[in-house]
Design a protein around this nucleic acid. Sequence first.
DNA 1: ATTTGATATAGATCACCTCTATGACAAGTT
DNA 2: AACTTGTCATAGAGGTGATCTATATCAAAT
Lengths: 292, 292
Amino acid sequence: MINLEWYRIFLHTAKCRNLTKAAQELHITQPSVSYAIKQMEEAVGLKLFHRLSKGVELTEEGRTLFDYVEQSFAMLDSGKKHLLNLKQLHQGEIRIGASDSLIKHLLLPQLNAYHKQYPGIRIRLSHGKTGEITKRLKEGDIDCAIVHLPIEDSDLTIHTLATLEDCFVVGEDFREWTNRSISTKELAELPLIFLSPGSSTRVSIEKWFAAQGFAVNPDIELGNIDLLAEFARLGYGVAFISRSFVQDELRSGTLFELTLEEPLPPRSIGLAVRRDMKLSVAAEGFVKILHM
Amino acid sequence: MINLEWYRIFLHTAKCRNLTKAAQELHITQPSVSYAIKQMEEAVGLKLFHRLSKGVELTEEGRTLFDYVEQSFAMLDSGKKHLLNLKQLHQGEIRIGASDSLIKHLLLPQLNAYHKQYPGIRIRLSHGKTGEITKRLKEGDIDCAIVHLPIEDSDLTIHTLATLEDCFVVGEDFREWTNRSISTKELAELPLIFLSPGSSTRVSIEKWFAAQGFAVNPDIELGNIDLLAEFARLGYGVAFISRSFVQDELRSGTLFELTLEEPLPPRSIGLAVRRDMKLSVAAEGFVKILHM
DNA sequence: ATTTGATATAGATCACCTCTATGACAAGTT
DNA sequence: AACTTGTCATAGAGGTGATCTATATCAAAT
């Protein structure tokens, strides 16, 4: 069986055409090179070098093998370089799962910062609901997921990232309701605009109403945060939304926040990763940016 | 520095996804595999495997490296297979130099036998005069040369292969000259047909005449053995040619050999190879056939 | 709670790679 | 012709690092 270190010695010797010089390059003594070449020739049963009075020269068979060995070592060198690039974040990819709204309203600054800092890393985003995303995470299709909390899943490790504060907002047509605190009963009787059933935001607000004895039936159900805000602005009713998603609109006066007698519970956003998997270097870099 | 044997262990471990099974395949113990993987990971500064409760799984970085290592080892395997093919004469090439006439009239049986026995070997022939051919041999452009002897060249090793017997032949028009022995003087006065100046055959016959005090001036000089025989047959004169090259014509009665008072010296054909070079396996196979 | 399958580590062992020393050879120089 | 130089090959000794045995640790399965 050929010791792979002999290939390295063979390669250097072929390039130097001189055992003594090859030994110097390899930082071993000349008899070591002679020994390794001899072992290789015996192992393959063929002469690989002509011994001349001044140095050596590859035989026909040696030249044939040389081509293969040279390519093989070039491949290993490329592999090592690629690993170094991954390590130094010059190359690589990161696969992140999050809902569209979280991507747009929460992650954009960090994604931009990460992309600016590591332009060689390819960022792949996949959107979906928390349930879908955690499934992809567990199946190894994505590296990390930004999810609404709480999540109980023994396969995942969860880190809290941020707190989301929700609120109800209205447009100009319903602005009179912002003059005073509103009871939950009053609120339940207004036309409500919610996200689709099953979204974490939707589930959390339904629980809030139920805890107070109300079953609400929203007038409008939408799948998009921007549309929620837009329909509220247009006077279709009262939208339930995370405050940080509509900061601009609140500041500019196109939307107005209702004041509730009963406070809304804060919600959390977390980072989920697979419990038994070490993150790639690229993913670790992103997580670090998230925690800043 | 990465010991190349670790790559082999890495490759097997990645394929088995289990250190214990990889150890079995490699005929070493499981702690040896664990040790090698650990050394590799420390050397590259990256985790290459996730340790699971049942076996291991490549990390992102490990998968990247795996692709390179797999290709690299495939290249080495191809190299070993190619060497084995060369060794077993399933593949390879042989480069032979000889004059056209030697190829056609002397080597064809052996070339046919060799090609039949080793159809995977590529036979490359280059023709030329002995001087040109020995030059190519010394420059490593051909593996062996079939040459007229004697040759004195310290860079070459010469083996005698065969003896060539030369003769003068005539067609029907000069047939009367074959009735009795002819003196050299008589011969010199006949119209002679020779090969071009510089060919070994030409040189040897000029020496023969000169040793007897005659300077001959052939009527016809040709560069082709077949044309020599044809012009003799057509009655243009007396051609000087190696007997073995016109055996068929002599046997069938289209050419006739003159009987000389002074015997012609026999000439030898030899095989020349470079003195300090080991022949390739393919060339050795051909030399063996030549010596049969 | 116990068993099973698997990896990681510690310390001992030994195989083989490497060393030093030197022989052999051919080309180059004097 | 004698000597020097550069280079490869071999012998025998040494030592290092890869491998071993033994066992700890852990999580999944029973």
